[in-house]
Amino acid sequence: NQASVVANQLIPINTALTLVMMRSEVVTPVGIPAEDIPRLVSMQVSRAVPLGTTLMPDMVKGYA
């Protein structure tokens, strides 16, 4: 089972991601792979992401 990136806190719209905002977790459906966490740092979210939400490619500007 592949771990995905999950929000560790509420991430407001247009916030630049930092390591403390993200954790890896095995979830369904699968989201952005956990190994991409270093690449996500400083990228902005395109919408508010609630705590515990799996990050999907369309939620991060410039990821897809």
Rank of each mutant, 00 (worst) to 15 (best):
N1R: 03
N1D: 15
N1T: 15
N1C: 06
N1S: 14
N1H: 11
Q2V: 10
Q2S: 14
Q2Y: 14
Q2I: 12
A3G: 14
A3M: 10
S4T: 05
S4I: 02
S4N: 01
S4A: 03
S4F: 03
V5K: 01
V5A: 13
V5C: 05
V5I: 12
V5F: 02
V5R: 01
V6T: 07
V6K: 04
V6I: 15
V6F: 02
V6M: 04
A7E: 00
A7D: 01
A7T: 15
A7Y: 02
A7L: 03
N8L: 06
N8M: 10
N8F: 06
N8R: 09
N8V: 10
N8H: 15
N8C: 05
N8S: 15
Q9E: 11
Q9H: 08
Q9W: 11
Q9V: 13
Q9C: 06
Q9N: 09
L10D: 14
L10W: 09
L10Y: 08
L10Q: 08
I11S: 01
I11T: 02
I11M: 04
I11E: 01
P12C: 06
P12E: 14
P12D: 12
P12H: 06
P12W: 04
P12R: 10
P12L: 08
P12K: 07
I13C: 05
I13K: 09
I13S: 09
I13D: 08
I13F: 10
I13Q: 11
I13T: 09
N14G: 11
N14C: 09
T15H: 05
T15A: 07
A16Q: 12
A16T: 06
A16R: 07
A16E: 05
L17V: 03
L17H: 00
L17R: 00
L17Y: 01
L17Q: 00
L17I: 14
T18G: 04
T18R: 07
L19S: 05
L19E: 04
L19Y: 14
V20I: 08
V20G: 11
V20T: 12
V20Y: 11
V20M: 15
M21Y: 06
M21Q: 04
M21S: 04
M21W: 02
M21P: 00
M21G: 02
M21F: 04
M21I: 03
M21R: 03
M22Q: 00
M22S: 00
M22H: 00
R23W: 03
R23Y: 05
R23T: 07
R23I: 05
S24K: 08
S24G: 09
S24H: 09
S24E: 08
S24N: 10
S24P: 09
S24R: 09
S24W: 08
E25K: 06
E25M: 08
E25F: 05
E25D: 13
V26I: 08
V26D: 15
V26E: 15
V26P: 07
V26F: 11
V27R: 08
V27A: 06
V27N: 03
T28D: 15
T28H: 06
T28N: 11
T28Y: 13
P29R: 03
P29Q: 07
P29A: 05
P29F: 04
V30R: 04
V30K: 07
V30Q: 07
G31H: 01
G31Q: 02
G31V: 02
G31Y: 02
G31I: 02
G31D: 01
I32W: 02
I32Q: 00
I32Y: 01
I32L: 06
I32C: 03
P33M: 11
P33W: 11
P33A: 13
P33D: 07
P33V: 12
P33T: 12
A34W: 09
A34T: 12
A34Y: 06
A34N: 05
A34Q: 06
A34C: 09
A34V: 12
E35H: 12
D36K: 09
D36T: 11
D36R: 07
D36N: 15
D36G: 06
I37E: 03
I37L: 12
I37S: 04
I37D: 00
I37P: 00
P38D: 07
P38A: 12
P38I: 08
P38G: 11
P38Y: 10
P38V: 13
P38K: 13
R39F: 11
R39P: 01
R39Q: 09
L40F: 02
L40I: 05
L40W: 02
L40T: 00
L40K: 00
V41T: 07
V41E: 04
V41H: 05
V41Q: 05
V41I: 13
S42Y: 13
M43A: 06
M43K: 10
M43P: 00
M43R: 08
M43V: 04
Q44R: 11
Q44H: 09
Q44M: 10
Q44N: 07
Q44E: 06
V45Y: 00
V45S: 10
V45F: 00
V45K: 00
V45R: 00
V45C: 05
V45N: 03
S46I: 15
S46F: 12
S46H: 14
R47K: 11
R47Y: 12
R47S: 08
R47F: 05
R47N: 15
R47H: 13
R47I: 15
R47E: 15
V49T: 07
V49F: 03
V49M: 04
V49R: 03
P50K: 10
L51C: 05
L51R: 11
L51M: 15
L51T: 13
L51Q: 10
L51Y: 14
L51P: 11
L51S: 15
G52Y: 04
G52T: 02
G52K: 04
G52D: 07
G52F: 05
T53C: 09
T53M: 14
T53H: 14
T53P: 01
T54F: 03
T54C: 04
T54W: 02
T54D: 00
T54N: 02
T54I: 10
T54S: 04
L55H: 00
L55W: 01
L55T: 01
L55C: 02
L55P: 01
M56G: 04
M56A: 07
M56D: 04
M56V: 08
M56Q: 09
M56R: 11
P57W: 14
P57K: 07
D58Q: 11
D58H: 06
D58N: 15
D58K: 09
D58V: 10
M59V: 06
M59P: 02
M59H: 14
V60T: 01
V60E: 01
V60N: 01
V60K: 00
V60M: 04
K61W: 07
K61H: 13
K61F: 07
K61G: 06
G62T: 05
G62E: 08
G62Q: 12
G62W: 07
G62I: 03
Y63F: 12
Y63H: 04
Y63G: 03
Y63Q: 03
Y63D: 03
Y63N: 03
A64I: 12
A64E: 09
A64M: 15
A64W: 04
A64C: 15
A64N: 13
